[in-house]
């Protein structure tokens, strides 16, 4: 399990990365934390001719909490994100999700942008990005563009990132409604494994307990992590009673089209999707009720 040979270049700035990526060469790969890329290279499932290391670019490592969004540099380590209290206050769902991501050693090295750019359909952070419709800033030699998460994920391990682009920054929308709650859970075989199914939700309530804003999503065994804006809209104006949650979740589980593998067949995954989505909407609602 030794990687095939490649050339290595350590980038010192995003501009340098963009310059190297200019030709849009498919044989070039960026490496951030490498927690998914390196095993794939060791198994020779991927064999880039050239590896550009973005780990030493300080400009890609930051957390900036602003009124409407939390901005995170793409190469910020997952452990840094998880330990940032102001971030957790502004967008609690990220920390809630990170509790399910890998282990201490992988979070110390793994980055927030790397997880999104890798786009494993069972990974936790892409699901959060989908639910919040995070904005992803992609940079190339020609400039930057911002892609909404809902447009970013195109398939398993496939994103809208062009071969000449580098993910630079992720903007996580902050819901400023006072009574906003969120929850994340998943079922996996073992703790720290990729989810068989992950579910998360975020809702805001008005003073009367009626839902004013809602988003939820599912991941695992699917094509991409999914969020259901149209179904979530049906929750608005309700008190998130069992009946409406159940109806919305049933439709979501039907829309969520998970595949089967040796750990869980499609039918079991659909059941998990319904159960976990229900639980997370309830939990997010509970969480919102506690806040004022």
């Amino acid at each position: 399990m030794k990687s095939a040979a490649f050339e290595y270049a350590r980038a010192s700035s995003v501009a340098e990365v963009c310059d190297w990526l200019r030709d849009g060469d498919d044989d070039i790969k960026l490496i951030a934390g490498g927690q998914s890329l390196v095993p794939m290279m060791a198994m020779r499932l991927t064999r880039p001719a050239r590896l550009i290391d973005i780990n030493e670019i300080d400009a890609l490592k930051f957390v900036a909490v602003e009124k409407d969004a939390v901005r995170t540099g793409a190469c910020t380590r997952q452990c840094v994100i998880a330990n940032d209290n102001s971030l957790a206050k502004a967008v609690p769902l990220i920390r809630q999700a990170l509790e399910w991501v890998g282990h201490v050693q992988t979070r110390n090295r793994g980055t927030i942008g790397g997880s999104l750019a890798h786009a494993d359909p069972a990974a936790e952070l892409p699901l959060v990005a989908q639910i919040l419709n995070a904005q992803l800033v992609l940079r190339s030699f020609a400039g930057t563009r911002t892609v909404a998460a809902n447009d970013f994920f195109e398939g398993p391990l496939a994103t809208a990132t062009r071969a000449d682009e580098c993910l630079e920054e992720i903007r996580w929308p902050v819901w400023n409604e006072t009574r906003t709650g969120s929850a994340f859970t998943e079922v996996s075989r073992r703790h720290g494994d990729f989810a068989l199914v992950a579910a998360a939700a975020q809702v805001s309530l008005d003073a009367g307990g009626k839902c004013t804003r809602a988003s939820f999503g599912l991941a695992g065994g699917g094509y991409i992590p999914m969020t259901f804006p149209k179904l979530a809209a049906r929750l608005l104006g309700t008190i998130l009673d069992d009946e409406v949650v159940q109806s919305v979740v049933n439709d979501a589980a039907a829309e969520f089209d998970p595949g089967g593998d040796l750990h869980a067949n499609a039918e079991y995954r659909r059941q998990l999707a319904a159960v976990l989505a229900t639980r997370m909407l309830r939990a997010a609602c509970e969480d919102a009720r506690k806040r004022r």
Binding site: Y8, R10, P39, C79, V104, Q105, T106, N108, R109
Partner: peptide, 14 residues
């Protein structure tokens, strides 16, 4: 910080 040394290339540790 603890990390997995099988998931890094030596050159990255420079």
């Amino acid at each position: 910080e603890p990390v997995r040394s099988c998931l890094m290339f030596a050159v990255q540790a420079d």
